[in-house]
Simulated scan of single mutants.
Amino acid sequence: MTDTAQGPEQPATAPLPAKTAPPEVDRLAAEQGLGEYITVRQAGSPSRALATGAVMAAIALAFMFVLHGPLSDASAFSFSYSVLRAVHLGFLLMFVAGVVHGIRGLVAGAQAHYLYAGGIVHRRRSGLRAVAWPNVAQLRSVHHRRGDRSAVGEVVGYRLEAHDGTSVLIPLVLSEGRDAFVDRIVAALRAHNRPIV
């Protein structure tokens, strides 16, 4: 997922799946004159995030419960107590991470990006935003900023910025080193002479 792995200068190579857009999305696209529907990218399932978070929290809670007995039986000054305490703390952090992951997924909500020949419609929860290619100010790459040092600086997505201040974040999803969805957006924006930075 580096700039070299997903450079916007390379053309799309893989066909995209064509699912139908919901009527309200098609209506907005028609109002904005976005033309023919191409494909959709679904992202951010709240139920999946909640389930993943719940499973993480449940596993951590179960191990914390199992460790509670040996931890309370061990001498506070023994080596085994120190090890058990560290492991217990690790599972406590895993529990907190699971809860945070589930809440974050619920707050972010379900998202989808509907790609049309003349622009994109972004759906987040129940809100819709449409951006036509001529109204795009620029497409800006978004880089990984935290975590593992080797991952810092990698491209994780693109932010589509419109002249009216509308901003749509499009996550990068690589398949065999390419993202056909982003490649189509890049090609359309290049055809409209829009900057890609």
Rank of each mutant, 00 (worst) to 15 (best):
A110P: 00
R125T: 08
R104H: 11
A54H: 13
R124F: 05
L128S: 00
V25R: 04
P70H: 03
I103L: 15
G35Y: 00
L28S: 01
M64A: 06
I120C: 04
L115V: 10
D179W: 04
M56Y: 05
R124D: 04
Y116P: 03
P8Q: 03
V197P: 01
T166D: 12
W133G: 08
L50T: 15
G153C: 10
Y81L: 06
N135F: 07
R145V: 05
S80M: 15
R48D: 12
V40T: 12
V131G: 08
N193S: 15
R190E: 06
A180F: 07
V173C: 13
I185T: 07
V156D: 12
G153Y: 02
V142H: 11
Y37V: 10
H113D: 14
H192N: 14
A49V: 09
E161A: 09
I196N: 10
T4W: 09
V186F: 00
A12N: 10
L115Q: 07
R159D: 11
G153I: 05
I120K: 02
V87M: 04
P46D: 05
N135G: 13
R48L: 13
H68T: 02
S126F: 02
R129T: 05
G69W: 06
G153L: 10
L71Q: 03
A188D: 03
P171T: 10
L172Q: 14
Q42N: 12
R146A: 04
E176D: 15
D148Y: 02
A151K: 13
D148Q: 04
L174V: 09
R145F: 03
R27V: 08
L106W: 08
Y114V: 01
D3G: 15
G90R: 03
V83W: 14
A74Q: 15
D148L: 07
V40I: 11
G109W: 09
A132I: 07
R129Y: 00
S82W: 14
V55E: 04
H68W: 03
G157E: 14
P134I: 00
L92S: 09
R140W: 09
R146I: 03
